[in-house]
């Protein structure tokens, strides 16, 4: 009796609806998706195969170590770790995979930042925008990351580009949130001061709010980069190349050894990227 009350409304076809919308988007916007897929795909291939992979590993390692040395305030720790870590990856024969992963992370994080910062600014400037965007961000972050792979495949097929797309959805929220937070945290008196001297909105933003919010925004970007990395691994399920694909294939063949080594490679990359972005933040703050 009570159960029949629950069945008062027949099942709402949300899944069908979503599929329909996705199909519709795919059809109508293929004009948009196809060139993105082609150009971005070509560019990323070029970057990983014709740029990064052509740099002799030894030079790459030394360059990373030098940068590490200088951004960590002339301390040896990070530089030493970079040398040993990157050499280990090379030693295990994963250098090309590493370059693919680096390409994916760089492109995905760059796009996330380029899209995320303006949205963060918009949220900080407008209460309405904040009210609309906040729940969307929550949705984007809590939806299991695998789910994004499905529309990514629908729109962009398989390969690097859908990986970037999925990563964008998953990894952009921290940049948006931290940009918003950073700008809102700028003390009221400073904002008043810039208004009192007759700043335009843009002057206030670029001369006062963004410089003051920089440390917070950088913390958000650090989060975004780390999330991109984790998504890039997941994206191997839809054919994104890189270290993640090695992990996936060892999973499929239940090959503990290879899986561990590829996993360690990802951890090394993660630590280097994390320390790099954090140090850049410290130095500028």
């Amino acid at each position: 009796m009570l159960n029949s009350m629950l069945e008062f409304v027949p099942r709402i076809p949300i899944a069908e609806g979503t599929e329909w919308v996705t199909e519709w988007l795919k059809e109508k916007f293929s004009v948009l998706f196809d060139p993105i897929k082609e150009h971005l795909g070509n560019f990323m291939e070029f970057m990983s195969e014709d740029v990064l992979m052509l740099i002799p590993p030894i030079i790459f390692i030394i360059a990373v170590a030098l940068i590490a040395f200088f951004i960590s305030g002339k301390k040896l720790g990070l530089a030493a770790f970079s040398i040993v870590g990157l050499w280990l990856i090379y030693n295990q024969g994963y250098w090309d995979h590493l370059m693919n992963t680096v390409t994916l992370v760089i492109i995905a994080s760059l796009l996330s930042v380029i899209i995320g910062v303006p949205f963060g600014i918009l949220m900080a400037k407008s209460k309405i925008a904040e009210a609309i965007i906040t729940p969307i961000l929550d949705f984007m972050q809590t939806m299991p990351a695998f789910v994004y792979l499905i529309p990514a495949v629908a729109f962009f097929g398989i390969g690097m580009v859908p990986g970037v797309f999925a990563s964008l959805i998953f990894a952009t929220p921290p940049t948006v949130r931290f940009t918003n937070l950073g700008i809102r945290q700028v003390s009221k008196e400073l904002v008043e001061a810039s208004d009192a001297f007759g700043s335009t909105g843009a002057q206030k933003l670029f001369k006062v709010q963004l410089p003051m919010a920089k440390a917070t925004i950088m913390a958000g970007i650090n989060q975004t980069v780390m999330l991109s990395l984790s998504m890039v691994v997941i994206a191997s399920m839809i054919g994104a190349p890189g270290l993640g694909r090695e992990v996936l294939s060892s999973l499929q063949r239940s090959n503990v050894g290879t899986g561990f080594v590829a996993g360690v490679g990802i951890v090394i990359l993660a630590i280097i990227i994390d320390r790099f972005t954090q140090n850049m933040n410290k130095k500028k703050a």
Binding site: S187, E189, L190, E192, A193, D195, A196, F197, G198, K207, V208, P211, M212
Partner: peptide, 16 residues
Amino acid sequence: VRREKMSMVFQKFALF
């Protein structure tokens, strides 16, 4: 007016 005619000094200085 804010640029040319009046300036403000703040309690907590509000320096950048």
